[in-house]
């Protein structure tokens, strides 16, 4: 990697800051602004959004001034990244969906099983074993050890 990459990162960060800052300002106009003496709930977020936008613009100018090459960052993320991201998110989402109806033990086991798909290397058997072991371990620690009031089973 070289300095051009650094610029691209800064430029993308700048766009992110400007986008979030502007959105925050637009939404903040819905809240009462008040006066300098009696500030309303809208003034502080408006101020922050404005500053963030300004910082974003500053960052963009700074990186554009240092002549930029095409964005190397936007080259497609490797398949591995997408796969990892997908399964990790899916695993956690499964836990969130299952924890209430199914209880801690099944939710943890299913989450662990899905998460093992995030990268090659786990056979089905080893994944199942890991799911079982971790579900038992976490149940022991959190429910029996610390005594968190979470149901184990449906």
């Amino acid at each position: 990697m070289d300095a051009s990459n650094d610029r691209d990162e800064n430029l993308i960060s700048a766009i992110l800051f400007v986008a979030i800052g502007t959105a925050a300002m637009i939404i903040a106009t819905d809240y009462p602004i008040g006066s300098l003496r009696r500030m309303g709930p809208g003034l502080f977020p408006l101020l922050l959004g404005g500053l963030l936008t300004a910082v974003g613009i500053g960052l963009a100018v700074q990186s554009l001034l240092r002549f930029s090459l095409p964005w190397s960052f936007l080259g497609l993320p490797a398949l591995a990244t997408l796969r990892a991201m997908f399964f990790v998110m899916l695993a956690l989402a499964a836990f969130a969906v299952l924890i209430r109806p199914a209880g801690l033990f099944p939710a943890t086991a299913i989450m662990v099983f899905i998460s093992t798909r995030a990268e090659p290397g786990h056979g089905i058997v080893s994944a199942l074993v890991l799911s079982f072991v971790l579900a038992v371990t976490t149940a022991l620690i959190f429910v029996y050890g610390i005594g968190l009031p979470i149901r184990l089973w449906p």
Partner: peptide, 13 residues
């Protein structure tokens, strides 16, 4: 490959 599912479960719980 064993550590990360464990980390995920601790995070979730």
């Amino acid at each position: 490959r064993i550590l990360f599912p464990a980390i995920l479960s601790f995070i979730a719980i």
